[in-house]
Design a protein around this nucleic acid. Structure first.
Lengths: 236, 236
DNA sequence: TGTACATCAGTGAACGCGCGTTCACTGATGTAC
DNA sequence: TGTACATCAGTGAACGCGCGTTCACTGATGTAC
């Protein structure tokens, strides 16, 4: 039976999870910089030194939370995209954008953990990169599908890329979507910064007094960004 | 003479400044959440309780730093705008955008203080609003000048605003630029979130591996956002 | 199935450090007559 | 110009609290024969 080594192993897996859950709860109170192993242990009814059986240091716990957050957001977004007919690229785009926002508003402290200011003294290891790429890859995948289907329209007013930017776009394309024209990739990146820029403004309180609540502002901008990357209006 | 009460008052003004300067220096090391009165006092060769003659609490010091940062950024931006011929609205727009970035890159920790994640447990008082409005008002002023001069072009693909968004835009227009069409104001807000979205991505390390350094990406987006709000291409 | 040993989880004390804020105080600077 | 008093800046000790991490240890769970 595979439950053979379980009593121990299962307990370990469960407690690891409980530690992360409690830590996530505490992010809301004190932020990533103030995350305290002792407080987590206290809340779990353990002694603080016991946590070192599960995470070698505070920073490792933080890293685990960051990767979990990127993956949760990535998965939600991938599912939203997958829920729309492949050819309806604009529908996929909008669904993905709204999934990102819904997740961010649902767990604002995890959003802050990954898209807020860096935690002072904490250096993120490179393991986070794969998880962090999931949302960008969803959006790029949609644009690529539109391009492949030949429905992507090049907006009239697009300027040629300057030299360094063209090189960067080429390198990025090579790594991520070789068939895509570099200008399109840069447009997608603009759209991406727009999306997260709005979310950060909203969640960090910068929109209070202008467009707050910002549901419709976000929706309008998501449409506008779909235009900007050249997605067609209706399903063919 | 106005130096009459000086010895005391001048010393007070100078020390207040030195405390803020040292606190700013420490933002780089420990972030806003970790700003420590004791550390500031130590560095200044004072005893920690002495700081209470200057700031009633840690949070008041933080508030002073925040207002200073907004004002410094606001002033830089206003000056950049003022340095370009009034009729060259696109030139003014681009100069302002680049001034914002130059300031942000020059004092990343102050940028983080005002546009990064909120400090846990700190509630910003409403005094910050006026200072925080300076950059938005510069950009809106440029758009308004273009509108007044009749050089603002309405892009072809603008959608009508949805109901709530239209109301919010009207309210915002009433408060800030009554003559401006609401759609234009929303476009300006989109441009604003784009600008700060890019800066946050850049400064918080989210662009590493894609368009880094991002000078040209930023420049291209600033142009693109000028298009989006409808600024004419060349000085008339 | 039963015993001997190895692995692992959790304990509790300790190290060495940090913090914000209060309070009674000394001594210098400023003010009014 | 000189004295008496009020204001203010800075001191040093203290309160009460927090933190991450290490280490020798007990006792339970798992493994090999």
């Amino acid at each position: 039976m595979n439950a053979g080594r379980t009593a121990r192993e299962r307990a370990r897996a469960e407690l690891t999870q409980e530690i992360k859950d409690e830590a996530r709860r505490q992010l809301a109170l004190s932020g990533a910089g103030g995350l305290s192993l002792r407080a987590v242990a206290r809340e779990l009814g353990m002694v603080s030194s016991a946590l070192y059986r599960y995470f070698p240091s505070r920073d490792d716990l933080l890293t685990a939370l960051i990767i979990d957050a990127y993956n949760a957001l990535g998965e939600t977004t991938e599912q939203a995209d997958a829920g729309v007919a492949r050819l309806d690229v604009r529908g996929r785009w909008l669904a993905s954008c709204h999934a990102v926002r819904a997740w961010a508003k649902g767990q604002p402290h995890e959003y802050t953990l990954i898209y807020g200011s860096p935690v002072p003294g904490y250096q993120a290891p490179t393991d986070t990169v794969a998880a962090a790429s999931r949302v960008p890859l969803v959006l790029i995948g949609i644009v690529r599908d539109a391009d492949t289907a030949g429905t992507l329209s090049a907006p009239a007013d697009v300027r040629p890329l300057t030299s360094v930017l063209a090189e960067q776009a080429d390198a990025l394309a090579a790594a991520v979507a070789p068939e895509l024209p570099p200008q399109v990739l840069i447009s997608a990146l603009t759209a991406l910064t727009q999306i997260f820029g709005m979310l950060s403004f909203e969640l960090f309180g910068q929109l209070v007094g202008s467009v707050d609540p910002s549901d419709e502002f976000y929706a309008a901008s998501a449409e506008r960004m779909a235009d900007l990357v050249g997605l067609p209006v209706s399903p063919p």
